[in-house]
Amino acid sequence: MKDLGLWGQLIYYFSHNGMYVLSQFNQTFLVSIYGVLLGAIVGIPLGIWISQYRRLSPVIIGAANVIQTVPSLAMLSILMLGLGLGQTTVVVTVFLYSLLPIIKNTYTGMLSVDPDVLDAGKGMGMTRWQVMMTIRIPLSLSVIIAGIRNALVIGIGITVIGSFIGSGGLGDIIIRGTNATNGGAIILAGALPTALMAIITDLVLSFIEKRLTPKTSSEH
């Protein structure tokens, strides 16, 4: 093993523990996704809501901002006191951190819709619901997706740290590497997939974001 060199060791690790890395990869990914999904379920309606009642926006966005300022390891530890060890605590943490980008982007997206277009929609006889579904959401969807994309990248980082409180995942491999003597290859075996996951998710979501940007031109 010693004479293999760092990259050789890494390849050796992957060839022997490939399925293990993959399952950890999946776990990390799922924990992040669950957290962000919950964040979207709560954050998007909240963002829409404060865009309608704008006096509430400083309160809600301020609260989300406060959450964001707490270091993630501290947040994990605090929540661990209440929720115990394990994935639930990490999902909740990811959820809390994804609130700010999602709420903020939803709010901004809603407000960026041309008021004349909204006035015309209402004036032509659309119900509030129809205005929301046919004008507001389509026109702000790309901005909302950008918020989710942001949240997911943050979420992946938090999930990896979440291994400290026993949620498993790629973080486990990294921690193992840091504990082992000459564990550089093991650290990389955990860190590289993590980075890859963040980059790929970002790319995929930016693609979705572009697709969801409403067409305003008949070219292409």
Binding site: D114, D116, V117, A120, L139, P214, K215, T216
Partner: peptide, 8 residues
């Protein structure tokens, strides 16, 4: 005044 056409 500003047409209010739906851009999308």
């Amino acid at each position: 005044q500003n047409t209010g056409l739906m851009p999308h």
